[in-house]
């Protein structure tokens, strides 16, 4: 109980440095949070990302069965294709009824939507060449291929991860030094106490413990603040995303990790990292400046 009192008094004594340390831990964890949540959502949507690599080949809605079969034969004979799936007009009509306004779709009738093939190519195949080839098949009405978006998403993810990762690491090191410096200053302000404790026979752990707890408290507070901020911001983004209805309309299949799951993970990671930073910062200061 006395140790907690000592910790509060000491942190309060070096208020400016304590707040700076907490703030650095906070910013560092925020960055970890941004890139962590980004990664989490990418892996959550891996199926959607995989679908981006698929090629959709739509057949002219006016084509009859014979013409549809010609397209089928052209595709079946192509050994660049790894996977081929057919969706008839009727299936497309049923699927559309689930996604779009049922009444509007029914009003358009089953012939409105085209039949299509979903194609996945072998890894070594040049997709652009295949798309050009598919567009040249008679009665092919449209070829959709989102590799550009996929590559953009992947390169964006890589950049976000790289930049946030480097910044988080730099800030991690900075917070470590700031915490260590804060603890060093509290040690300096309590040097008389430390000397007295030494000669009256206080154990090494009793002398060091308040400094260790001080570092952990800084990390803990940084983690608490960043958990609250990340939780609130993610909740806002989540609500905004679903209020747009993006998952249902133009980006079918894309979704965000639920808030509860994300916040729980954020809390575990943030508190773990914050406490570890605080502990190591203190240990650095103790090792360097406290000879018991």
């Amino acid at each position: 109980m006395h140790i907690i009192g000592e910790v509060i008094t000491n942190l309060n004594k070096n208020r400016v440095l304590t707040i700076t340390s907490i703030f650095t831990v906070f910013i560092m964890l925020m960055l970890v949070g941004v890139f962590g949540i980004f990664l989490l959502n990418i892996s959550y949507n891996s199926e959607y990302m995989d679908n981006m690599l698929e090629i959709r080949i739509f057949i002219d809605p006016n084509a009859d069965e014979y013409r549809e079969n010609r397209v089928r034969e052209a595709l079946l004979s192509d050994n660049r294709i790894d996977y081929l799936a057919f969706q008839s007009k009727e299936q497309a009509f049923e699927d559309a009824k689930e996604i779009y306004d049922k009444e509007v779709i029914e009003g358009l009738g089953p012939d409105f939507l085209p039949a299509s093939y979903t194609v996945r190519l072998r890894e070594e195949v040049d997709a652009d060449k295949f798309v050009a080839f598919a567009e040249g098949i008679p009665d092919v009405y449209q070829v959709d291929y989102h590799a550009g978006s996929f590559e953009f998403a992947v390169s964006l993810a890589n950049w976000v991860n790289l930049v946030s990762g480097i910044l988080a690491m730099l800030l991690g090191v900075l917070s470590l030094f700031l915490i260590s410096n804060t603890i060093r200053l509290t040690m300096a302000s309590r040097s008389a106490e430390v000397i007295i404790m030494k000669f009256i026979g206080a154990t090494e752990s009793r002398i060091k413990l308040p400094f260790l707890i001080e570092g952990i408290t800084i990390g803990f507070l940084g983690a608490a603040i960043s958990s609250v901020v990340v939780g609130l911001v993610y909740n806002r983004i989540h609500d905004w995303f679903y209020s747009l209805g993006v998952d249902e309309v133009f980006l079918s299949g894309l979704s965000l990790v639920p808030v509860r799951e994300t916040v729980l993970l954020v809390i575990i990671v943030f508190f773990g990292l914050g406490i570890m930073l605080g502990m190591f910062g203190s240990m650095m200061a103790i090792r360097k400046n406290l000879k018991v």
């Binding site: 008389a192 007295i196 000669f199 026979g201 154990t203 090494e204 018991v292």
Partner: peptide, 21 residues
């Protein structure tokens, strides 16, 4: 080093500058 504190409890020390908090 872990026994030093217990060893020191058996020795009382006073200094010229008192070393009071």
């Amino acid at each position: 080093r872990y026994e030093v504190p217990h060893f020191r409890r058996k020795i009382g020390v006073v200094f010229q500058d008192y070393k009071l908090l």
